[in-house]
Lab assay of single mutants.
Amino acid sequence: NNDALSPAIRRLLAEHNLDASAIKGTGVGGRLTREDVEKHLAKA
């Protein structure tokens, strides 16, 4: 659900052409954090 993404996370996802649903969020309520996105990028 993109409504739960902060603007910074949306921008980071867009810059790397990532789909938020492909990344498991570890923030409050399962929200994506910058660390989640960076860890996903490091794996790729």
Score class of each variant (00 low, 15 high):
residue 1 N to H: 12
residue 1 N to K: 11
residue 2 N to R: 08
residue 2 N to P: 13
residue 2 N to V: 14
residue 2 N to E: 15
residue 2 N to S: 13
residue 3 D to C: 06
residue 3 D to K: 11
residue 3 D to N: 10
residue 3 D to F: 02
residue 3 D to W: 02
residue 4 A to E: 14
residue 4 A to I: 14
residue 5 L to T: 06
residue 5 L to Y: 04
residue 5 L to D: 05
residue 5 L to N: 05
residue 6 S to G: 07
residue 6 S to W: 08
residue 6 S to F: 04
residue 7 P to A: 13
residue 7 P to E: 15
residue 7 P to Q: 12
residue 8 A to V: 10
residue 8 A to K: 08
residue 9 I to W: 07
residue 9 I to L: 14
residue 10 R to M: 07
residue 10 R to W: 06
residue 11 R to L: 08
residue 11 R to Y: 07
residue 12 L to E: 06
residue 12 L to W: 06
residue 13 L to Q: 00
residue 13 L to M: 05
residue 13 L to S: 00
residue 13 L to N: 00
residue 14 A to Q: 12
residue 14 A to G: 07
residue 14 A to W: 14
residue 15 E to Q: 15
residue 15 E to S: 13
residue 16 H to Q: 03
residue 16 H to I: 03
residue 16 H to R: 03
residue 16 H to M: 06
residue 18 L to D: 01
residue 18 L to M: 07
residue 19 D to Y: 05
residue 19 D to V: 11
residue 19 D to N: 10
residue 20 A to H: 06
residue 20 A to F: 07
residue 20 A to G: 07
residue 20 A to S: 08
residue 20 A to N: 03
residue 21 S to K: 10
residue 21 S to V: 07
residue 22 A to E: 14
residue 22 A to H: 10
residue 23 I to M: 08
residue 23 I to G: 00
residue 23 I to K: 00
residue 24 K to P: 08
residue 25 G to N: 02
residue 25 G to D: 01
residue 25 G to Y: 01
residue 25 G to T: 05
residue 26 T to S: 11
residue 26 T to N: 04
residue 27 G to Y: 01
residue 27 G to L: 03
residue 28 V to E: 14
residue 28 V to C: 00
residue 28 V to I: 13
residue 29 G to H: 08
residue 29 G to D: 10
residue 29 G to V: 04
residue 30 G to T: 03
residue 30 G to F: 01
residue 31 R to K: 13
residue 31 R to L: 11
residue 31 R to W: 08
residue 31 R to P: 02
residue 32 L to W: 06
residue 32 L to C: 02
residue 32 L to G: 00
residue 33 T to I: 05
residue 34 R to W: 15
residue 34 R to H: 09
residue 34 R to T: 09
residue 34 R to S: 08
residue 34 R to N: 07
residue 35 E to S: 12
residue 35 E to G: 10
residue 35 E to N: 09
residue 35 E to Y: 13
residue 36 D to P: 00
residue 37 V to P: 00
residue 37 V to F: 03
residue 37 V to L: 07
residue 38 E to Y: 15
residue 38 E to H: 10
residue 38 E to G: 05
residue 38 E to A: 09
residue 39 K to N: 13
residue 40 H to C: 04
residue 41 L to N: 01
residue 41 L to F: 06
residue 42 A to Y: 12
residue 42 A to H: 09
residue 43 K to T: 12
residue 44 A to K: 13
